[in-house]
């Protein structure tokens, strides 16, 4: 298994490819010349100080943010203003948010079946079967008929993960999935994500959970001030970071 991790299929082409991507908010240059390739089945963990552009970068991958320069290709589809392309990419890319963003007016089961029914056009029964399967996977099969407001933060985030998985995506994006959680709930969410990684999902995670990164990541990416400063396999990344800024950042988050 570790062999497979080290050599992600090079022949299949990149699942995500960013070439010379730039983005500005007004005068503020948020993303500067980002180049990144994620192969099928590869797990990339993105870290960096807040405001470094890591969330903005992964939000560009499914067009929640628009890039102004450069080229982004996701699952073989060129990402541009073409609505058809955007819709096609969003069908293949799942996203988990820091604030869960479950739909509070729908039950857990309805949250999970909404997109499969309306976007994938699945029969309700089939969508519900898939939903129950993934609820089982995230270990909350008995909460199907509750509303999000009735669940704990950790349970809500696991429902959010299951909701994305129900669309059977090729790629999962995680935008600080544990940052809004109480400490005792972080593990249950990370365990689900580790399980997902073991099944070979292509994943890009923005997170500060370095233990998780060591276990799961094939590649660490460190960003600061809108730039990718360093990228390396986790072993090298943690053992001997090359860049001064990476060292400072790691010493700040790993000292306690």
């Amino acid at each position: 298994m570790s062999d497979a991790k080290a050599t992600p299929g090079p022949t299949q082409g990149a699942m995500i490819e960013l070439q010379a991507v730039h983005k500005w908010y007004g005068d503020f240059h948020v993303l500067r010349d980002i180049n990144l390739q994620v192969q099928k089945g590869e797990k990339v963990v993105v870290c960096g100080p807040s405001g470094s552009g890591k969330s903005t970068m992964i939000r560009c991958v499914n067009r929640l943010e628009e890039h102004q320069q450069g080229r982004i290709v996701v699952a073989g589809i060129e990402l541009n203003a073409d609505m058809k392309n955007i819709e096609a990419i969003r069908r293949e890319v799942g996203m988990v948010f820091q604030q869960f963003n479950l739909f509070p007016h729908l039950t857990v089961l309805q949250n999970l079946t909404l997109a499969p029914i309306w976007v994938r056009k699945l029969p309700k029964k089939e969508a519900e079967e898939t939903a129950r399967y993934y609820l089982e996977r995230v270990r909350i099969p008995d909460q199907a008929d509750k509303y999000p407001g009735q669940l704990s933060g950790g349970q809500q985030q696991r429902v959010a993960i299951a909701r994305s998985l129900c669309m059977k995506p090729e790629i999962m994006l995680f935008d600080e999935p544990t940052s809004a959680l109480a400490p005792e709930m972080i593990k249950e969410v990370l365990d689900v994500m580790i399980g997902l990684a073991e099944d070979g999902m292509t994943m890009v995670c923005v997170t500060h959970e370095m233990g998780f990164a060591r276990t799961v990541a094939d590649m660490m990416v460190f960003m600061d001030r809108g730039e990718v400063i360093e990228r390396a396999p986790p072993k090298d990344f943690f053992a001997n970071p090359k860049n001064e800024r990476t060292r400072t950042f790691l010493s700040q988050i790993l000292t306690h």
């Binding site: 067009r63 929640l64 819709e87 969003r90 069908r91 996203m95 909404l114 997109a115 976007v119 959010a160």
Partner: peptide, 21 residues
């Protein structure tokens, strides 16, 4: 806005986002 973003990320079209979410 997070509700709309979640709906977008799931691939719902703008009309569906309005009507369903």
């Amino acid at each position: 806005w997070g509700q709309s973003e979640a709906a977008m990320a799931l691939g719902l079209k703008s009309g569906q986002r309005m009507r369903l979410v």
